[in-house]
């Protein structure tokens, strides 16, 4: 049942992305409304899919790569939708939805098998720690998109060659604000994720910090974003630099998610 729902969500993501890209190309207002509605529907289907998976496997579905990446995509979608409450950023959807769709494809290609929960993961901290960490990734992806959009828009303004993006993307100021807000939320969640993780580690493994590769890389990622936020407040690392930092930080976050699990050995590695 949850598999069927997953296929449905994947299809909904592909269609929504197509709708956003059509809106990007054609700038047809009707298409924009269609795309928004489709994304909302996609978000709802995906939520139902995750709940169904939860009922099927009997524990929080965040323990395999398939489950974690699907939840990652879900966080992006709802992070994006939560922003839409407060303000609109033109054509943000055309950048965000492809990323969510790619994640869903990765989730689709990884094993859907249901694992028995290893004893170390049988804890109430599992849903808390894992979901917060993945939601942090969701908002950091939004910051990444804002950074990419900023660099594209800035290049056209600096080079005075107005092409695809100048009229389609919002002002540099709006993109920088978007980057800042996304990083601020993502960073707070990440801090909370690391904190809950270390409390859980104390309970499960006896000490707060192990310098296990996942922990180390999470710390590196955290430091990148901490530097970005700090420098923004003190010496005004804004706009272009903030955009670049958000992109670098996102690469580090992805490495923490996958690189560590597949390339480096560690006690976190049973997630995969």
């Amino acid at each position: 049942m949850s598999d069927l729902l997953f296929q449905g969500s994947l299809l909904a993501y592909v269609l929504t992305t197509a709708a956003y890209l059509v809106y990007f190309a054609r700038r047809n207002k009707k298409m924009r409304r269609v795309a928004r509605t489709m994304l909302l529907v996609t978000g709802v289907i995906h939520t139902i899919c995750i709940v169904a998976r939860y009922l099927e496997v009997g524990h929080t579905p965040l323990t395999s790569n398939h489950e974690a990446v699907s939840f990652f995509a879900w966080s992006i979608t709802w992070g994006f939708l939560s922003f839409r409450w407060r303000y609109q950023v033109k054509n943000f959807g055309a950048f965000v939805t492809p990323i969510a769709t790619i994640l869903m494809l990765i989730a689709a290609l990884s094993s859907h098998e249901i694992h028995e929960l290893p004893p170390a993961l049988q804890s109430n901290w599992l849903p808390i720690h894992a979901s917060i960490a993945l939601m942090a990734n969701g908002f950091l992806s939004l910051a990444f998109c804002a950074g990419v959009m900023y660099l594209l828009q800035e290049r056209e303004i600096k080079d005075k060659q107005f092409g695809l993006f100048y009229s389609r993307l919002p002002s540099l100021e709006a993109l920088d604000n978007l980057n800042h807000h996304s990083v601020a939320i993502g960073f707070s969640l990440m801090t909370l994720g690391i904190f809950t993780g270390s409390v859980w580690a104390k309970q499960a493994w006896g000490s707060y910090w192990h310098w296990d590769p996942k922990e180390t890389w999470a710390l590196i990622t955290w430091l990148i974003y901490a530097a970005l936020l700090h420098q923004r407040l003190t010496v005004g690392w804004r706009r272009r630099r903030a955009a670049i930092m958000a992109i670098i930080g996102f690469a580090a976050a992805l490495f923490t998610l996958w690189g560590v699990s597949y390339l480096l050995e560690g006690i976190h590695s049973y997630v995969g």
């Binding site: 700038r27 540099l172 100021e173």
Partner: peptide
């Protein structure tokens, strides 16, 4: 159509650019 899209005079072009850079 996008007939009223881009600024058609130098001073409006400057204003439009300023809005792309600063937003409000």
């Amino acid at each position: 159509t996008n007939i009223g899209g881009g600024a058609a005079s130098i001073s409006f072009a400057a204003v439009q650019l300023a809005r792309k850079i600063f937003g409000e």
